Each structure stands twice: as C-alpha cells, then as structure tokens.
Amino acid sequence: MSDLMVHIPVRLGMRRALVRAVDGVSFTVERGRTLGLVGESGCGKSTTARAVMRLEEPTSGTIRLLDQDVTHLSGEALRRTRRHFQMVFQDPYSALNPRLTVGQIVAEPMQAQGLPRAQVTARVEELLDLVGLQPRHRYAFPHQFSGGQRQRIGTARALSTHPELLILDEPVSALDVSVQAQVVNLFRDLQDQFDMGMIFISHDLSVVRHVSDDVVVMYLGQIVEQGPSESVLTNPHHPYTEALISAAPGRAGTADQRERIVLTGEVPSPIDPPAGCRFRSRCWKATEECKQTPPLAVPDGGAHPVACFHPSI
C-alpha cells in the first residue's frame, strides 16, 4: 500500500469540508508476517483496514495485492479478487447475520465465488473443525453462541476462500480476558498453518507485541513510527509512541519502568489538522521546527523510521 488517502466529505452547517481520516499511509505486509496497527481511537486504523478491503473508497494512493493493483477494481473484477483478502470484524455480535445458520454464514463467501455445492458443504465442516467448533454447530444460529465462539465463526468465514491477507480489526476487544488469549493463539496457529499475511488492529499493546512481527503507529491519519515490533515497543523514538506505551497496563515491555506520560489537550479535528507535525499541539518536545512536516526516516543512532524532529534515541 502506497500513499493511501481517504478523505470523507462532510457538511458543517452551510459549509462543506473533508475529514482527512487517512492521509498518506504506506506500508507492506509480507506473507507469513503480522503487521500491528496501533493508535488512539479516531487515528484512522479501521478506515485504513476498510480501504484495503475496498469497503471504503480511497481518495488517492495505491493498494496492491499479489502484485495486482486493486485500488480501482469494481464489479466482477473486485468480487473475484476479494477471495484473496478477508476481514474479521471487531464486534462478534453484529458481524454475523442473525437470520442465517452458522453453516450458511461460513458458506456465503464460497457461494459468492461460485464453488460447487458439494465442495462448499465439505469445506464448511472442515473450517468449523479448524476453529474449534463441532460439525453440529453448522445448524445453530449466532445467538446460541458466546462472544469467543462467534469470533471463531467469523474467523471460519474469513478463511473460507483461502485468503493471502487476513485483516483483524480489534478482534478481541469485545471478549472477556479469559477468552482473548484463546482467540489470539488461534490466529497465530492459523497463520503458521496457512502462511497468511495479517494486519492486526488493536489498542492493547501487550497483545500487539505478542502477535505482531512489525508495528505501525498512527496518529490523526498519518504514520508517526514504524518498524519491528520488538524495536518499536521497547525503544520508541516518537513522543506519541512513548505516551502510548507508558499508558499501557503493565507496560508493553516487561522490563519497562518508564514514567507515566499524561498527554494534555484534545486530539485535533481531522477536518482541520495542525500544519506540520500533527502531534505538536500535544507534544512536550514541540518547537518552531515542528510547524514543518517531519519526514518518516531512520534518525541518526535510531533503530527504525520515525516522523519526528526530536526523536528519543
């Protein structure tokens, strides 16, 4: 994905404006690796994921999957391509059609791709077993299952077309703590088995560190820091990343004893973001230089790219 932008038109009274939900985001997800996407609510994580899925129309930029440009695909061409990338949604209660049985829910993507009925039936049973459910569950309805079981059903549906990329949008945030580890471990096992690339969106940095090979930190629609998970979460360069890690319960790094950083001020509006570094209105390191836009680059002595004029090294 290169220089992705999603600008959403809105009305403010008599005036028209643009919500700059995603504003120039670029990253690559390799087969067999997981990219963690982190940041505060409203930073553009889910909009980025929906744009990759083509559920949200990109304003500009390029989305490539398996060396194919899918940015502007539509109709039949988009339907055929969708088998290669699937999504597990945040809310396991609203993501499943309550009028369909589990078997019908899991079979839908395969039917949309035109698979023969006998092949679909066999594949549904295989998928239910794969995610830890019983063959008899195919005749039950979503309301008969717990949150963790519903997320497994959503996962089975997402895997039904053998995707190369699986996008997980806050997949455990609505689940009890006792169930979260089971679902996270399920995703890791499935990735090892099918060699998929994954985008894992979460607020929980401890989960991101456990799951992700690489991390992208977003703030107000832009990437402020990215790199290997261990490097970013144990040696953050950007003040915003430092604040996120300091606020994480138990800290993202087990040996991390950094002081709690309390950010002041409100998150600026994505309709009218600050010029230059978008974090400068809340940053304790901000100077006049920060009114310019910092490039995303590896600083002298740094271990990974960061968009900051005053990074911590």
Rank of each mutant, 00 (worst) to 15 (best):
F194V: 06
L128I: 11
D169T: 08
D169I: 02
R80Q: 13
N185K: 04
D204Y: 14
P171G: 13
L168H: 00
L96S: 02
L159S: 01
I167M: 13
A158I: 02
H72M: 10
S160T: 03
L186C: 10
F187W: 06
Q134H: 15
R117T: 15
R79Q: 15
N97R: 08
D129F: 04
Q111V: 05
L96K: 00
L205T: 09
R150Y: 10
P92Q: 11
F141W: 12
R80A: 12
S146R: 07
V131D: 01
Q182H: 14
P109W: 12
D129M: 09
M87K: 08
D195A: 12
Q111T: 05
P142F: 04
Y139A: 01
T121H: 03
R123V: 02
Q113S: 04
M198F: 05
R82I: 01
F187Q: 06
L115G: 05
L128S: 13
S160R: 00
M198Q: 09
I199C: 01
G154E: 02
N185W: 08
P163I: 01
V106Q: 12
H143G: 03
V131Y: 00
D176W: 14
R138D: 01
P163V: 02
F89Y: 14
F141M: 06
N97A: 10
Y93I: 02
A95P: 04
Q151N: 04
Q119C: 04
S94F: 02
G147R: 03
V131G: 00
D195P: 04
I199W: 10
T71Y: 14
L186K: 11
R117N: 13
H84C: 03
V106L: 12
Q182S: 15
V70G: 14
N185I: 03
R123A: 11
L100N: 02
L190P: 03
R82N: 13
G114P: 10
V102C: 11
H203N: 11
P109M: 13
V70P: 04
D189C: 05
R188F: 11
P142K: 08
L159I: 03
Q180C: 07
A95M: 03
L168S: 00
G148R: 05
R138G: 05
N185M: 06
A95S: 15
R79T: 06
T155I: 14
L78F: 08
R188G: 10
Q149V: 02
D91S: 03
E126Q: 15
F200H: 01
M198A: 00
P98I: 08
R117G: 11
L78N: 10
E126T: 12
